[in-house]
């Protein structure tokens, strides 16, 4: 292979250090001596559990609901499709706090839909794990929808056409041809959605609150720790970094298409 252009390598190194230096700073400033003490507190354990459970559930829910939405956006021409696509993209650009307030107005106990949820099913979302999952799904699902929609549009239509001419119903074509072909993009979208859900803060604290042991996720725990003890916040941040790296590395090896 020929030597890569020096300018490109330099810029790439700059970009790499842009990500590496802040992480190194966290490690450098971390109070390593008090690490075990902070890590074994109940708050950290529960925040970690809530973060993992809710982000994985939000990712699964995003795939479950987002895949059909992506398919409709990619395959079904209808008036207002571009409006729907803009609507799906909105949570990507909206400040998450605004999303949280909107969710509160829709699904809060006095909200548009929340009122019915409460009176018919006795379900309230504020202060509960399902509330956290709803908030995270709201901000995370667009990543999956847009990833999968793009992939569906790029699929070679001949496979689906061939199956259809051989007599497969539309449903069968979806399950046997479309879905397997789109699988890598669904996986990639689910990972993106998971990562976004894990880091979610604004919508969650607004819609589900900051209740330790119930809705306090790792990012919210970091924020709360910052209110009282910078060192504890740094330790929590390190934990979040470690968990994210661990999961991303594991998932990349198993899921993401290797270059």
């Amino acid at each position: 292979m020929r030597r890569p252009p020096r300018a490109l390598v330099l810029l790439a190194a700059l970009a790499a250090s842009f990500f590496a230096v802040p992480l190194a700073a966290l490690a450098w400033r971390a109070p390593w001596a008090s690490l075990p003490e902070v890590l074994t507190t109940e708050v950290v354990g529960s925040a970690l559990r809530i973060s993992l459970v809710s982000s994985l559930a939000a990712s699964a829910l995003s795939a479950f609901l987002g895949l059909p939405l992506a398919w409709v956006l990619a395959r079904v021409p209808f008036p207002g499709r571009s409006v729907l696509r803009a609507l799906v993209t909105l949570p990507l650009v909206l400040p998450p706090v605004v999303g949280g307030v909107a969710l509160l107005l829709a699904l809060g106990r006095l909200g548009l839909v929340g009122r019915a949820l409460e009176s018919f099913f006795g379900v309230t979302l504020f202060g509960t794990l399902p509330g956290v999952i709803v908030a995270e799904t709201f901000v995370a699902m667009p990543f999956l929808v847009l990833t999968v929609e793009g992939a569906l549009k790029g699929l070679d239509p001949r496979y689906e056409d061939a199956a259809a001419t051989l007599g497969a119903s539309r449903g069968l074509v979806f399950w046997k041809i479309t879905l397997p072909l789109a699988a890598p993009s669904v996986a990639a979208g689910a990972v993106l959605a998971w990562a976004r859900a894990l880091g979610e803060f604004g919508a969650t604290i607004t819609f589900a609150g900051n209740l330790p042991g119930e809705t306090q996720t790792m990012p919210i725990a970091v924020y709360t720790a910052l209110l009282r003890d910078v060192d504890a916040a740094i330790v929590l941040s390190l934990v979040l970094v470690a968990v994210s790296l661990l999961v991303l590395v594991t998932l990349r090896e198993r899921w993401a298409p290797q270059a």
């Binding site: 107005l105 809060g108 106990r109 929340g114 504020f126 607004t206 609150g209």
Partner: peptide, 9 residues
């Protein structure tokens, strides 16, 4: 206050 107004218990 917003959370309370929106029915948080």
């Amino acid at each position: 206050a917003t959370q309370l107004e929106q029915g948080a218990r």
